[in-house]
Design a protein around this nucleic acid. Structure first.
Ligand SMILES: [Zn+2]
Length: 290
DNA sequence: AGTAGCCCCTGCCCGC
DNA sequence: TGCGGGCAGGGGCTAC
């Protein structure tokens, strides 16, 4: 599942090929993937840079045109440096839903959007429309590394949530942009905070632990080129290695690496959650299950 | 306004 | 070996 470290690694992997390249042709093989199909055409525009905001990737073209991509669960952007022409169709089993033909320095290549479950979305939008948006990618909290994403902010922000579990609070993209199921579980384990406890009442010292461990873990994951738990790969089809450093995600019923206690699976906000009942036993603040 | 629940979609894994 | 059901889950949406 691509979260901030994976999207950031994808961004870096695409930069050398795309920046300065001209998009010659866009082909949509599955219309559901493209939001507002046909509204804007990127053909003929030059990619000037690639930005990331939370889990959104933005290819920024001249004329303030932006292609915003969200990979959701199984989306991929894949470079095909040795191909130059998009076929009329791809075999259904390849799950390629959008393709782009590019040209740079006299050579041509392809960029493909591949998404098995087809949850991901691509949108062509003007910078002005994007800036005016107040939902979705226009309603994101601060980036984890931004100065304003600090303990004081979190303590203030939790006040709006009377009984939301701490885990659900951190998954809310309007609180912090870019955290997903894997990294929230890892952050709460490192911070020794129980994912079930209410977000409200977070102590300043606990918020400090969240912020510091969040930044440490995200930096380590970016350095490891992301987590390939199932099928994440970057633009060159390369896997990450942070899955080798996970303490809890995907390890339910296995022993805790710190204390040996059997890790517990729980369902929080519809998402599977793994935590250590010993290391994360700030239990006096966790409500009893009904 | 915050919160819960449903939906999307396919591949994989498990049990029979 | 085949098949059905459960599961994975980010975010958009509706309903309370
Ligand atoms: Zn433990």
């Amino acid at each position: 599942m691509p979260e901030l470290p994976e999207v950031e690694n994808l961004r870096i992997s695409l930069l050398p090929a795309l920046v300065g390249a001209r998009l010659n042709r866009l082909v949509v093989y599955h219309p559901d993937v493209l939001i507002n199909p046909g509204k804007l055409d990127p053909a003929g525009h030059i990619c000037l840079g690639i930005q990331r905001r939370g889990k959104y990737l933005r290819l920024c073209f001249d004329s303030d045109l932006i292609m915003e991509v969200h990979l959701r669960m199984t989306g991929h952007l894949l470079l095909r440096p040795d191909e130059s022409v998009l076929p009329p169709a791809y075999p259904r089993s390849e799950h390629i839903h959008v393709g782009c033909e590019w040209e740079k320095d006299g050579s041509s290549f392809l960029l493909l959007y591949q998404d098995t479950r087809r949850f991901g979305r691509i949108e062509l939008i003007s910078r002005a429309d994007l800036d005016a948006r107040s939902t979705g990618s226009g309603n994101l909290g601060p980036e984890p590394f931004a100065d304003e994403c600090n303990a004081e902010y979190l303590c203030r922000r939790v006040a709006r949530h009377s009984r939301l579990p701490l885990k659900s609070f951190l998954l809310d993209q309007s609180v912090i942009a870019g955290l997903g199921n894997i990294y929230v579980d890892e952050i709460l384990f490192a911070a020794r905070l129980n994912p079930l406890r209410p977000a409200a009442g977070l102590a300043p010292e606990e918020a400090e632990r969240i912020v510091s461990h969040m930044r440490r873990i995200l930096n380590a994951a970016i350095a490891a080129k992301g987590t390939t738990f199932r099928d994440y790969v970057d633009g060159h089809n390369r896997k990450g290695s942070f899955q080798e450093q996970l303490f809890v995600y995907g390890r339910g019923s296995e022993p805790c690496h710190i204390c040996g206690t059997t890790l517990v699976n729980a369902r929080i906000g519809g998402r599977n959650t793994v935590y250590c009942p010993t290391c994360q036993s700030d239990a006096e603040t966790v409500p009893e299950p009904q």
